[in-house]
Design a binder for these strands. Structure first.
Lengths: 190, 190
DNA sequence: CCGTTTTTTTGATAAATGTCAATGGAGATG
DNA sequence: CATCTCCATTGACATTTATCAAAAAAACGG
């Protein structure tokens, strides 16, 4: 499973064979069955996690028991609770697998140490953070300025793959609407 | 006006006198009157901008003429259109002053060059990006999981200063609701 | 293949929020 | 001081979205 990660890394920046070995040395593989938790609210998240197969989600559960999905992650995406990772505080979010999945884990301390030693890795992290920032900004903008139907249309445009793989009630949760509303929107769509 | 920026920088990381001079050498001051544009939709944004006095907003205007405010920035905040800055494409957003303001500008090429030479500056940028990422994630979570009233309550908690300085119809826009809705929420608040 | 669970859809109704039009106040400006 | 613009509020009403309950459809597990 490391090969997919290696391929991803090489597509993003130039790594020497030795650097790649260093990375592999600290990477562990975790297989998750559908519905299995990678992180549960209240635990502390101490990894960087790369999805090499499958699909996961980050979500919270409110006082009424309703779930609110913050992010999805499929192959070649990273996932985790940066808030908990950075603060060392218990996570406010859950992460679980939507499909049977494989994630690669690197413990924070080791990842940070590697970033010091491997400039390409540090650059990759910075670029990733930068792109994520812009993506989140777009999501905020869409969320505050469009109707439910428009949000769904944009979601289809931006993430056609998510729309194919992910149950609709989860898409609805991600978009901040109920599953009934999304169902009715779809009915009225072309 | 550079002194305020210097103070901010020193509060975030350790800079040598020479590094500080290098930064000052590329910094220009721009004074803006209330309502004056710092960036207009369609222009390309090529700066990093630090607010040393006043208050500004980033917003878009939709096809119906409605404004949607993406961010506010007061003293010691950065502002700009990262999307345009990174891509070199025309900005989708406007930035203008809500109060008479002073911003410090550093051209992108010079800023990037300084980041190469001054590790503390690069670190500051990374830390800032990291914090912004988390802040945006919180905003997304709030937006998709709370009612209009709850969003306003959380806004008051998180940004009491904004609530004091910024006209209510702009707060409403930032929260993704109409000014009438916000007015009614406030009436029903304790 | 059958029973079970999950997911999606539908209908009836309620609640939240938006739209439009009007008003009054506060502050800026000449 | 008079005028003007911006801002906040209010009321009436329309629209959007949520809620609750139920059923149909699809996916899953043994």
């Amino acid at each position: 499973m490391f090969e997919l990660f290696e391929k991803y890394l090489r597509s993003k920046a130039a790594f020497t064979a030795e650097e790649m070995q260093q990375i592999e040395a600290v990477t562990t593989i975790k297989r998750l069955r559908k519905r299995q938790f990678l992180l549960q609210e209240g635990e502390v998240w101490t990894y960087n996690a790369f999805v090499s197969k499958g699909c996961l989600r980050t979500y919270s559960v409110d006082t009424k028991g309703a779930e609110h999905i913050l992010t999805f992650a499929v192959e070649n995406w990273w996932i985790g609770d940066l808030q908990s990772l950075a603060s060392g505080l218990p996570a406010r979010f859950n992460i679980d697998a939507i499909e049977d999945s494989v994630v690669l884990l690197i413990r924070k301390e080791e990842f940070d140490r590697l970033c010091q030693v491997i400039p390409a890795l540090q650059q990759l992290v910075n670029a990733l953070l930068h792109r994520s920032f812009l993506a989140q900004q777009n999501r905020i903008h869409t969320t505050i300025s469009h109707s439910a139907e428009e949000k769904y249309r944009l979601f289809l445009q931006n993430f056609p793959e998510f729309a194919r793989r992910i149950p609709q009630h989860m898409v609805a949760s991600y978009l901040g609407m109920t599953t009934e509303t999304l169902s009715r929107i779809r009915r009225n769509l072309v």
